[in-house]
Structure formats: C-alpha cells, structure tokens
Amino acid sequence: MGAPVAAAPAGPWSRRLVDRLPGLAVAVAVASVATVVGGWFPLVGGPVAGIVIGVALAAVRRPAERLKPGITTASKFVLQLSVVLLGCQLSLTQVVRVGGSSLPVMLGSLVACLAAAYFVGRRLGIARDLRTLIGVGTSICGASAIAAVTPVIGAASAEVAYAVSTIFLFNIAAVLVFPVLGHLLDMSQQAFGLFAGTAVNDTSSVVAAAATYGDEAGQYAVVVKLTRTLLIIPICLWLAALTKRRALAAATDGPGAGPRLNVLKLVPWFLVGFLLTALVNTLGLIPDRAHPGLTTLCVFLITVALSAIGLTTDLRGLRRAGPRPLLLGACLWVVVSVTSLALQYLTSSL
C-alpha cells in the first residue's frame, strides 16, 4: 500500500472560521438565555437582557483569549448584519404616506436631541462617543440606532453598554408615564401615536406605550417608529464623514490638510444592505409569512451582538463614567418629549 495522503492544510477562510466558532458559540448561548429572559419580561427585551448578562459574566470572569476572535466577530459583523435585516421591516410606501405628517416632528425632535446631546454632554464632561451613542439612541430608535452607529464611530464596549442601559431606563419610564400624559392632554389616537412613535425609542416600548392608549394609536405609532428608523442613514453618513475627517486631520497634523474625503468610501456596506432590503420589502418580494421570522432573527442578531459587547465590557470604564450619562439621558428624554409635543401643537397635529 502507498503512503497515506496527508490532509490538505486548512485555508485562511476555514482557519479563521474555526478560530471564531468558540467565541461565536458563547455569544449565541448568552443571547439564547437573554431571549428567554426577554420573553418573560417583554419591556426589558432580549437585547438589553443580553448586554446585562454579558456584563455580569465578564464581571465574574473575563473571556479566555481563544474566545476573543469570535466575540469580536459577533460584536462587529453580526451587529452590522442585524442592521441589514432591520430593513425588512420597512415599507418605503408607508414611509412616504406617513412621512408627510410626521416628518416635521421627527426631524425637529432629532435636531433638538442631537444638539442637546452635544452641548449638555460637553457641559457634563461626557466623552464624545458616549454622548453620541446616547443622543442617537434617544433621538432615533434605541438599541438599533446604537448598533448602527457603533461600528461607524468605533465606540468602546463600555460606552455601548452604558448607552443601551441608559436608553432602556427611559424607555420604561416612557411606557409608564406617556399614556397618563396623553390622557391628561386629551390627545387623539393619531396624535398620541405620533407622540409615542417620535419620543419613545425601542419598538417594543413604542408598542407597549401606544397600545395601552388604544389600537389605532398603536398601529400609527409603529409606522411612525419604522419611518423614524430611516434617519439612521443620514446620521451614519454624517458621523462617518466627521470620524474620517478627524482621522485625516490627526494624521496630517491639522484640519484642512492632506487628502480630500472620498464620499463613496464613507458609505458603510450595511447601510447599503439596509436600503436594499427595505426596497425589496417595498416591492413585495418578501412574503408576508416571512416577516415574523425575519423580525425575530433581526432581534436575535442584535441580542447576539450586544451579548458579545457585554462580555468585553470594561467595568472600570463604567464606574469611571459615574451617574453623568444617566443625567444626560434624562435631559435628552425630556427634550425629545417636549419637542415632539410642541411641534405637534405648532403644526396643528395635537
């Protein structure tokens, strides 16, 4: 018999996949537990539970070195993939129909919140990336917006964990307070739906707050909320341009020096994917029966990514931040709520 044939050496792609499997498996396992917990407590949800469980595990024992490649992949690539799937929930036809009445309120609330995040955050001495995450999460769509912005600005895991936790706290406050406020102001179903859709962050909290007020308010709020999700695109492009410009300025020792920005290179691949999936959904190429599964998959992928971020969170960084990010979150929550109500009043929507 001839000599046995030696196995071919593993290629670079297969080797990288094998290296990442253990860490990915850990992130998926944590996310699976978090999904169960989120099912028990819908107002908490899987993504928030994932980051909390991940942080708790990291506090007990930091992930081993062999797990880090897979955990990094979960916190970056899986995070970006979840943003692509987010587009499956959007119908551009609904966006156009609802946008005419809700766009002034959405844009006004967005500008007011981001301006407040910048000025109040600087006044409180909060780091730039953290105040950006809290501002974008509050003004657009909570954990989904934070997921989209994180790879664009290269935020640290501790900043992501603090931002998600801050957004979650005021989501709960909104679910409890907003229906009572709506009745005190004698808001119509559509007016409250617009208020909840522009001033509450995560979709689950929007549904909880608006459905408590009424079925019509709940349906309108969800469409407004999904329309608001599209604001992720211009915000990510703007932040990508700012981040690139700062990097170029630092590399050339001063603003205005060095090569010009290449606009095409600023567009993250996952934003293109987000738009394409939204377009595919608008054209009716995604069957209705597939939507629940795709939505569940999207939420699970966000949960996997945030679980991985929790596993790599620097707890000392969280402690150093102190209570100031929570104070910023409270300020922004008030700014968005008051701006939404004021703009509805000025545009005769209230």
Rank of each mutant, 00 (worst) to 15 (best):
R97L: 01
R320W: 09
A117Q: 01
N281L: 07
V175C: 13
F178Y: 14
G284L: 00
S144K: 15
A74G: 01
G256H: 03
L318N: 06
A147E: 15
P292C: 13
V52N: 03
V280M: 12
L231K: 07
V334N: 01
P104S: 09
T313G: 09
R20H: 13
S337G: 07
R228V: 02
D314H: 12
L264C: 10
D215T: 12
D129G: 11
A27Q: 02
L271K: 05
G135I: 09
G197R: 04
A240H: 03
L306M: 15
S91D: 07
G258Y: 05
F274Y: 07
V120Q: 02
T203C: 10
A112E: 00
G135L: 05
L279H: 10
I233Y: 00
I153N: 11
I232Q: 01
A10S: 06
V120W: 09
G193C: 11
V175P: 07
T212S: 15
S337M: 06
V222D: 09
G322Y: 08
G108W: 13
L346P: 14
D288S: 09
G137E: 08
A211S: 14
R131A: 06
G154Q: 12
A58I: 08
Q89G: 02
A148M: 07
A240T: 11
G54V: 04
W333E: 05
F300C: 10
V299N: 10
A7F: 11
R16Q: 14
L306V: 12
I71L: 15
V52K: 15
V33G: 08
V105F: 00
A330N: 06
V96K: 04
H291P: 03
V83W: 01
V272E: 05
L130I: 15
Q80S: 04
A221P: 14
A330Q: 00
G258A: 10
Q219G: 11
G142S: 12
S144N: 11
V180Q: 08
F274T: 00
P47Q: 02
A127V: 09
F270R: 03
A7C: 09
Y118A: 14
G322P: 12
K225V: 07
L176N: 10
C88Y: 05
V263Y: 14
L103R: 01
